[in-house]
Computed example of a mutant assay.
Amino acid sequence: MAFTINNLTDNSNTVIKDKVGSFTVLEYIKDLSCTSVGEATAQYYMSKSNMHRKQLMIEINNSEIMMRAGAMQYTVGNMEMTTGVKGAGGAVRGFLSGAATGTGSIKPLYNGTGTILLEPTYKYIWLIDVDNDEIVMDDGLFLACETTLKIGVVARSNFSSAVLGGEGLFNMSASGKGVIALEAPVPAEEAVVIELQNDVLKVDGNFAMMWSNTLNFTVEKSGKTKMGSMASGEGLVNVYRGTGTVWLAPPSN
């Protein structure tokens, strides 16, 4: 069985923005499907602001990937989709973990050989090669990954860090070795990457999009006393302590 996809990667309006393993990020230079002056005007200014439609293409060869529910646009080739859920208990666990992390209850698995195109997005697609490491993601960033990675749920260390820190009670984690795709609010080249060696990072707001699971995340007062925190105007801050890496969105976002 063989197939050819024409006018996709060989289209002059399409560029390959990034490629890691079997994951490829396509970016459309212009939106050529405008049907009104209003749409054309909006697309013009969006293009000037670096807002381009992007699409994730995944090519699998006798392998398997996991995807965010509802993200698939079309598939070509000999592959099958399963839920990866075994029995009612698995469905309940999937629902609870999905609701906790904001990623959807059931994440479909696609295995076989072929090409998968995900729904286009104006957000930014990050491709991360996890190499025998474990990362924790902000809620809702997960898009797709190789099933060689172990996807889990990490509970916040205490209730106050979840509620007061704005990070939610749980976050999704990815560990092992494989490629993961995230749908982020900022391009990867704008992310501020901070590497800690037995040190402390304090962030005013939930700007952290991803961090090493080796770090201890808590929420603390910005000052030594409650009155001092109030006087500084900062109040509570998210604190990442230990050895590891934190990826921050630019504060303007």
Score class of each variant (00 low, 15 high):
172 M>H: 09
251 P>N: 11
175 S>T: 15
78 N>C: 10
87 G>F: 05
252 S>R: 13
187 P>A: 02
66 M>K: 14
61 N>A: 09
83 T>G: 14
173 S>M: 13
4 T>C: 12
196 L>Q: 10
165 G>W: 02
217 F>Y: 15
149 L>V: 04
241 R>H: 15
34 C>M: 02
182 L>Y: 02
220 E>I: 12
239 V>Y: 03
147 T>W: 03
218 T>G: 02
187 P>F: 02
47 S>M: 07
108 P>M: 03
208 A>G: 06
172 M>R: 15
187 P>K: 00
188 A>C: 07
232 S>G: 13
206 N>P: 11
73 Q>D: 15
62 N>E: 14
152 G>E: 07
218 T>Y: 07
85 V>F: 07
31 D>V: 05
79 M>E: 00
92 V>A: 11
98 G>C: 02
45 Y>D: 11
163 V>M: 15
203 V>N: 01
140 G>R: 08
52 H>V: 06
24 T>H: 08
47 S>Q: 10
246 V>K: 04
244 G>D: 09
154 V>H: 09
148 T>K: 13
174 A>W: 12
99 A>Y: 10
76 V>R: 15
26 L>P: 00
126 W>D: 12
247 W>N: 04
141 L>V: 06
160 S>I: 13
210 M>R: 12
38 G>I: 12
138 D>A: 15
160 S>L: 13
213 N>V: 04
73 Q>H: 14
50 N>P: 08
222 S>R: 04
18 D>C: 08
171 N>I: 08
33 S>P: 11
11 N>K: 00
146 E>V: 06
82 T>I: 11
61 N>I: 07
126 W>C: 09
194 I>E: 10
104 G>T: 04
185 P>T: 01
